[in-house]
């Protein structure tokens, strides 16, 4: 329970940053109402989509610019590259040890992103 609560705190912090960024973009582009926000979320970004949505729906109510805005989440699969055998594999399934050669010399190629992709507004 405590862990869940702490987790949500993380998502809330992320949501505040998204809102701040959109408010800046809104000012720069003289937007009146933001109706939809699309986020690219890596599988190993440490953010739980459901929790993010809950926090979003709560936090946007307190803004003027996007109080009705929907949050769309596009998942980016996590991929890891092995430096030893040059193969790429799915991070969620296999973790940090290469399933092809057993090497630990691997690094994440993609999947930790939290990107603001686009905003629909008028």
């Amino acid at each position: 329970m405590e862990e869940r609560k702490a987790k949500k705190m993380h998502e809330l912090g992320i949501v505040f940053h998204i809102i701040k960024t959109i408010e800046r973009i809104g000012e720069e582009n003289r937007l009146n109402t933001v109706t939809e926000v699309t986020l690219e979320l890596g599988e190993v970004s440490g953010v739980i989509p459901g929790e993010l949505n809950d926090c979003w729906n709560w936090a946007v109510k307190k803004t003027g610019l996007m109080n009705e805005a929907k949050l769309l989440i596009e998942k980016i699969p996590a991929l890891t590259f092995c430096e030893s055998c040059k193969e790429t594999y799915g991070t969620i399934r296999h973790g940090r040890i290469c399933p092809y050669c057993g090497s630990e010399m691997t690094y994440l190629v993609q999947g930790n992103e939290i990107n603001l992709k686009e905003i629909k507004a008028c």
Binding site: H17, T21, I25, N29, L31, I114, N115, K117, E118, A121
Partner: peptide, 18 residues
């Protein structure tokens, strides 16, 4: 009715903080 616009941002949400 106002025209709906799509603004491409393509930026990490940490960019402003950075």
């Amino acid at each position: 009715m106002e025209k709906v616009r799509i603004i491409e941002v393509k930026e990490s949400i940490f960019a402003d903080n950075d």
